[in-house]
């Protein structure tokens, strides 16, 4: 933690024969950590735990479990539609910022897409930390102005008469998309179904995988342990 391997030799104005270097951002973060620790406002171990959680534990597989359960359990799906915060919490996934969740369900007529036009509000509880493109200005503006063009960039072409609803997240209310269950999945278990649910399908920039196509985009490589939740 104190030894930063992510230093770079380019842009390096001096000859420092292999000593350490902190780039300006890393140094600023160090400075803030020092101040906040001395003031008793943070505990460095707790900071490490948060990093560990968001790097390795919270991620879209949480959301995939929510979606798969909604696909197999009508009563859960109805609760998810009515009070997503409570339904998601019932699976053990609770928000850290006290935010409310709303699940928006794709139908044959309507496709849903989530965005945060102002910054980067995102349903961390079920999807983890957002991908870089979600936080970047082009997606934040174009998802509202030209959603079909954005979806085309993701290789998603919807029928002309499909309505696209765009949901703009806030700090208090965050959305997740519940995609439609793929066809030819009747015999699959909830775990197997969860493997078909991609991150992008819960943002609305993709669709779930089809059975037998577990490839790029799958949240679990076949050899990974699907039970390794949080």
């Amino acid at each position: 933690m104190t030894h930063d391997h992510h230093t770079h030799d380019h842009d390096h104005p001096h000859d420092h024969h292999h000593d350490n270097e902190l780039d300006p951002f890393a140094a600023r973060v160090k400075a803030l950590e020092t101040i906040l620790t001395e003031k008793g406002l943070i505990d460095p171990a707790a900071i490490d735990a948060i990093v560990e959680t968001y790097e390795h534990k919270v991620g879209p597989r949480n959301g995939a479990r929510v979606v798969a359960k909604a696909w197999v359990d009508q009563e859960f799906a109805e609760r998810l539609a009515r009070d997503a915060t409570a339904a998601i919490a019932s699976l053990g996934y609770t928000g850290r910022q006290g935010e409310h969740m709303q699940a928006v369900f794709n139908t044959p007529d309507t496709h849903n897409l989530i965005v945060c036009t102002l910054c980067s509000c995102y349903p961390w509880t079920v999807l983890g930390v957002p991908p870089v493109w979600y936080k970047a200005p082009p997606y934040r503006s174009q998802a509202v102005i030209n959603p079909r063009g954005v979806l085309a960039e993701f290789g998603l072409k919807l029928p002309e008469d499909t309505r696209i609803r765009v949901w703009d997240s806030t700090a208090e209310l965050r959305y997740m998309v519940v995609p439609m269950r793929p066809v030819e999945t009747d015999g699959l278990s909830e775990d197997e179904l969860a493997r078909l649910v991609t991150r992008d399908s819960m943002i609305g920039t993709g669709l779930p995988l089809r059975p037998g196509s577990l490839g790029p985009g799958a949240l679990w490589p076949p050899e990974a342990d699907p039970g390794a939740g949080i």
Binding site: F25, V29, I47, I50, Y54, E55
Partner: peptide, 12 residues
């Protein structure tokens, strides 16, 4: 790493 640290500071 600093990005993760900065992220965690705000959350904490």
């Amino acid at each position: 790493p600093w990005q993760a640290q900065a992220f965690a500071l705000a959350v904490a």
